[in-house]
Nucleic acid binder design. Sequence first.
RNA 1: GGCGGCGUGGCCGAGUGGUUUAGGCAGGGGCCUGCAAAGCCCCGUACAGCGGUUCGAUUCCGCUCGCCGCCUCCA
Length: 465
Amino acid sequence: MLRLHDTATGTVRPFELRDPGRVSMYVCGPTVYEVPHLGHGRFTLVFDVLRRYLTFSGLEVLHVSNVTDIDDRIIERAAREGRTEREVAGEYEATWWAAMDALGVLRPTVVPHATGYIPGMVELIGDLVARGLAYEIDDGVYLQVDMVEGYGLLAHQPLESLRAGARVEASGQKRSPLDFALWKKAKPGEPTWPSPWGEGRPGWHTECVVMSLDLLGDGFDLHGGGQDLIFPHHENERAQAVVEGRAFARHWMHNGWVTAGGEKMSKSLQNFTTIDDLLARGDPRAYRLLVVRSHYRSPIEVTPETIATAGKGLARLDALARRLSLDDPMAGGDVVRDEAVAAAPGGVEQDAVTRFREHMDDDLDTAAAMALVFELVNAAHAAADDGDTTAARRLGGTVAILCGALGLRLRGEVGEVDERTQRLVGERDEARRERDFARADALRDELVAAGWTVEDGPDGTVVRR
RNA sequence: GGCGGCGUGGCCGAGUGGUUUAGGCAGGGGCCUGCAAAGCCCCGUACAGCGGUUCGAUUCCGCUCGCCGCCUCCA
């Protein structure tokens, strides 16, 4: 039984599903106005790992994640670059999916776009206005938060203390600085949709509540995102559901920051690294390993050094796959299901799979799960050294399945070796046969200089990049 | 001002009221190897500080210090 930390209660508690066997989860997606950075990479990886683990556990997962394709920042960028909002959103959405694909993050089951749900949002807002819970002023329609039962549940602060700490002044007409925009009236030149309050566009918080309830239904299982979405975004989504009398998310899950130099990675601090930078520097799987090596609620420090360290751990996993010629459990698709455990060619280390599940069920303790995997790696090598091929393959196969369950695909192949390199390798084998070690060493230097890793095994020299 | 998180061996990073160790990376010794690489074996006795509870605390409680975050857009 999976237990997860729930932001609403502040406790780790059983993840109880609305419909047995089926998981409905909504994860707030990107506003497509800029290239994604490592913070986006982390939250998508965290929820990808959750989704994969749920799938591995035999559950059917309906994963909805939105794209916010109309927003102030998109409008600003379009204006600055003399383009349409559609062009800007289209470009950055394409960039987003390219990054996700490179990271091995599964596409959500459904990807609603804000611009596709505007009538439903208008309907919701209209209802709130009609019932006296929202009010219209010059620049838009606002929800009156002091009408909301339990406002501050997710922030873990009562309304009064939130109000006392508010850093923004109430705009003249707002009844409280905490009241938030459900509908924003258009300024000249902005893209608009019709509404009873004039041309305009919906507020961000209204998008997600409408789309999540529409696609997943009342009382869906899990709502997630980065911790910075807790307040006000998720609080305000919940507020709308509450006043509408609709059961909202049963469980709230939020991941920790990516930090750089100890500080939160963010646009405003200019300390962010884009996912493209990461991809240019190395294997994207190293980032997944870095993410799963710590707990999802802990901050992670991401620097070239920490990524490089993760890359070495990854190399250790790949080396095992290579040595044992492990089958790829994801070969038949992009996910590893629990059937893979029974179908593993060499069998699995059943006890290890059980322990893996115990770690994962404990609020997704991927760090402990990976420690277990590395223990198996060690045991597999030791068995192989002892000549116990059966045990080695069973252990190694388990490693591949458990890594696969976390979305980490091992690379057992050495990659393409060009003709010239192949010739040098042949020459080196020949020199070694003739015990001409000076020449063998010179050839190795040449190969290393060309970027190859050279390993002499019982069957001669093997090179890889 | 309010609320919350964190402080673990050289670095990263789990975990636990006591007994046998997380794990990775780096480092030292050994085995293997022509030499390497990879791999294996062995090696670190750490839990910010100060009190308290306890037979016993890194692990619970309180306080102090330090760092980070939320209360505005933010993954």
